[in-house]
């Protein structure tokens, strides 16, 4: 496995508060990684710096060996970085199908065309239909995004990012605000798509069950720095993680707990 993304001592300061403090963070090609930490630990800020919503004050961000630290969002997307949002960001007055199609038009550089009809571009609609099917949203293709349920909106948000054909996908709390029963199906859908396409994914998540069951590697953040980095088993036993994040220095429950 080779390194896909690497941050070198990135810093982001908001006034007196250092949200991200000299973080070295790596994503390997093809892995599914979880980013954990309490609120305010700097997870979302780190993702914002990498995806281009914010610009780093110091340090460097390398994607496939190229420095993207100061690049505009558009260039980072073209390079292969895409993301979803914690508070879902959709085009509410467009249909689910239009939402995905727009990402495809944009990826193909076709949004510049103003004298051709969007509906006439059959390959784009074919691809958009396929993407919706992958995310089990095909039944809602013509529903306005604003009228979908929370779980469907979460999936559509990821589907839009996926339609950009990224190499690295950031998912900011893909199951927040969703009922407990809906979480597993959503994560199953997302992770199976990501793994079958060989996309690297970094998932910010608070639900530890989700974190431990879907990720290859876990990075724990605390107060703007990386606290621990390892496989789910290593993190489960990590003293620092247990004391700062989970709060009780108990040994982890055995996986087959007797009843």
């Amino acid at each position: 496995m080779s390194v896909l993304l690497e941050t070198k001592a990135v810093v982001k300061q908001f006034g007196e508060f250092r949200a991200v403090d000299r973080v070295d963070f790596r994503v390997q090609e093809g892995e599914v990684l979880a980013l954990i930490g309490s609120n305010g630990a700097g997870k979302t800020t780190l993702v914002n710096l990498i995806s281009g919503l914010l610009t780093a004050d110091e340090g460097h961000i390398l994607f496939r060996g190229h420095d993207v630290t100061k690049q505009p969002v558009k260039e980072r997307i073209r390079a292969g970085i895409a993301r979803s949002f914690q508070l879902v960001n959709l085009f509410d007055q467009l249909s689910a199908l239009d939402n995905v199609a727009l990402a495809i038009f944009s990826r193909q550089g076709k949004t510049r065309r103003l004298l051709s009809l969007a509906d006439a571009d059959r390959p784009v609609w074919q691809e958009a239909t396929d993407v919706l099917a992958l995310f089990r949203l095909d039944a809602h293709a013509r529903t306005l995004a604003g009228g979908l349920s929370q779980g469907e909106r979460k999936l559509l948000d990821v589907a839009i990012a996926y339609a950009l054909k990224p190499k690295l996908l950031f998912l900011d709390e893909p199951t927040s605000g969703v009922g407990t029963r809906e979480k597993a199906p959503i994560m199953d859908t997302i992770v199976s798509v990501v793994r079958s396409e060989g996309i690297s994914a970094a998932i910010i998540e608070h639900d530890m069950d989700v974190v431990f069951s879907y990720s290859d590697r876990i990075v724990a953040m605390h107060q703007g720095t990386i606290l621990a980095d390892g496989t789910p088993d290593q993190i489960r036993r990590d003293e620092k993680v247990l004391t700062t994040l989970i709060g009780t220095p108990e040994p982890p429950r055995p996986s087959q707990g007797g009843g």
Binding site: S51, L53, V73, K74, I77, R78, A82, R83, F85, N89, L90, F91, D92, Q93, L94, D98, A101, L102, A103, F105, S106, R107, K110, T111, R112, R113, L114, L115, S116, L117, A118, D119, D121, I160, A161, L164
Partner: peptide
């Protein structure tokens, strides 16, 4: 009519609905 139904017209509607998201599908 052609402009509003073109891919460009769709991109404008996307900007109208959600500026941040439009930016994150690569629309300047």
């Amino acid at each position: 009519w052609v402009i509003v139904n073109s891919p460009f017209g769709r991109a404008l509607q996307a900007i109208r609905d959600n500026e941040t998201r439009a930016q994150f599908v690569g629309i300047p």
